[in-house]
């Protein structure tokens, strides 16, 4: 059974969580259709380090996870306003 360390609830069974997808840069409101299509659909889908949005379903708490999609290891979890998010070397390309 996989355990994920939720910043609010502590270590919980991974079946209590859902993955909401990659952390992406939101285009400015006046961006063109192509940029929005890109934002909505296109994925980096890396085999390796990824930075993703996750949610703890029972408490509706959204946070950020760095994990490895080849080894299924969780590297770190962050609160959304965690100062480490900007400092830490996130996986390339997800910023």
């Amino acid at each position: 059974m996989k355990i994920l360390n939720c910043p609010l609830n502590g270590p919980r069974n991974i079946s209590e969580f859902a993955c909401l997808g990659e952390v992406k840069t939101v285009p400015p409101p006046d961006a063109g259709t192509a940029d929005w299509a890109n934002f909505v659909f296109t994925e980096r889908n890396a085999a390796g380090l990824v930075r993703e949005w996750w949610i703890h379903i029972a408490t509706n708490y959204v946070f950020i996870v760095d994990r490895d999609t080849l080894t299924e290891e969780t590297i770190r979890t962050y609160r959304v306003n965690d100062p480490l998010l900007s400092q830490s070397l996130g996986p390339g390309g997800t910023k």
Binding site: F41, T42, E43, R44, N45, A47
Partner: peptide
């Protein structure tokens, strides 16, 4: 996604 990246574009795919 990996091979498309080599060719220089990204896909709407989650693996």
């Amino acid at each position: 996604s990996h091979v498309a990246e080599m060719a220089g574009f990204r896909l709407p795919i989650r693996t």
